[in-house]
């Protein structure tokens, strides 16, 4: 089995809600991320999916050290980040890079492309500027741009090209893990496949681990090896991609998949329409946070929070009814698979 690159253990991020002007006191907290655990292996793509406000972006920010976890820990190659020496910490920062959604916001408009891509090298590696320029040109070639693009400004490129520049920058320190936060959703349809294929190629070439955050399930299916589904700050289901899409077990996952639009007409399966809206993370429902919208909910569901249990190898589901529902799901799926 390949090496585990990163492990998140019961990560929590609670944002305090304060009242009062001068003597602010905390009155409650928004539980943006509320106990999330997962691992990412070398060369593997793990996707976090869920609707807006489910905590997927906050989780990514904690891994990128842009937010401090309220509780829980992050282990990198088996070592707890809180126990790293400053030198090791610097190495962690260099090993974990990111590509964001909006290529117009992720490149500093006042810097030339060469400086943008070279910045991580300038900051982290004591190299002569000649060597940095060499590497930048190499990186540009790798992401499908021309080496002499290095002295242009970002506004001279299209969205897809800018995203390539952002990827080149993320690659510059030869990282082990790249966080991809909606890397293609701001791009044109005909450009998305280019970028997704580029990311896949780079993953093969360098054995990169990806943490992919996306709301488009088809993109997730194409890009990832494993998927974790988040709802209200918690992971409700984790499985191999194929397994998750063919045998979703958590009622929320099933609703989410059934709501995603199919790419061909007349192929939409039975639609599971969820009643109501996502509750506020300020005051999540007790027990299983999905129970008010779940058609199978039992009295137990509103009292006890379900713990993730492994249903099949690598398929974890946080639902009291996972075992009972699985049987039912299997029945419907075998019915659908018949021609």
């Amino acid at each position: 089995m390949t090496e585990v690159l990163l492990e998140a253990q019961s990560l929590k991020k609670h944002f305090p809600v304060t009242a009062g002007f001068i003597l602010a006191r905390t009155v409650s907290s928004i539980k943006a991320v509320d106990g999330v655990s997962f691992i990412i292996r070398q060369g593997e793509t793990l996707s976090l999916v869920g609707e807006s406000g489910c905590g997927k972006t906050t989780t990514a920010k904690m891994i990128l050290l842009l937010e401090d976890p309220t509780m829980g820990s992050i282990l990198f190659r088996g070592k707890d980040l809180q126990r790293l020496t400053p030198a090791e910490m610097k190495e962690y920062r260099a090993s974990v890079q990111a590509v964001f959604q909006d290529p117009w916001s992720s490149l500093n408009p006042r810097l030339r492309v060469g400086s943008i891509i070279g910045e991580p090298l300038v900051v982290n590696r004591a190299l002569p500027s000649k060597a940095i320029q060499e590497q930048v040109r190499e990186l540009l070639l790798q992401v499908g741009l021309r080496p002499d693009h290095d002295d242009l400004y970002p506004h001279e490129f299209s969205g897809g090209q800018r995203q390539r520049i952002a990827i080149a920058r993320a690659l510059s320190l030869k990282p082990a893990l790249i966080v991809l936060d909606e890397p293609v959703s701001a791009l044109d349809v005909s450009i998305r496949a280019q970028i997704m294929n580029l990311l896949k190629d780079l993953q093969h070439q360098y054995g990169l681990g990806y943490l992919l955050i996306a709301h488009n399930l088809a993109t997730v299916r194409y890009m990832s090896h494993r998927v974790a589904v988040m709802y209200l700050g918690k992971i409700v289901e984790t499985a191999q991609t194929k397994q998750l899409f063919s045998h979703p077990q958590h009622p929320y996952t099933r609703a989410l998949i059934s709501a995603a639009l199919r790419s061909r007409p007349d192929t939409q399966d039975e639609e599971i329409v969820l009643p109501g809206e996502v509750p506020s993370p300020l005051d999540p429902p007790p027990g299983c946070s999905f129970h008010p919208r779940c058609s199978n909910a039992l009295p137990l569901c509103s009292k006890t929070t379900p713990v993730p249990r492994e249903q099949e190898r690598g398929h974890w589901v946080a639902c009291h009814l996972a075992e009972t529902l699985t049987v039912a799901t299997r029945a419907t799926i075998s019915a659908e698979e018949r021609p």
């Binding site: 998305r192 496949a193 280019q194 997704m196 294929n197 896949k200 088809a218 899409f245 790419s263």
Partner: peptide
């Protein structure tokens, strides 16, 4: 045709999408 081939879908696992080169 190229657009339809370049869109990932939910129903099946595709190894590699067709990608339209260049820019509009």
């Amino acid at each position: 045709r190229a657009l339809l081939d370049s869109i990932p879908n939910l129903e099946e696992q595709v190894d590699r999408l067709y990608s339209i080169e260049g820019q509009p």
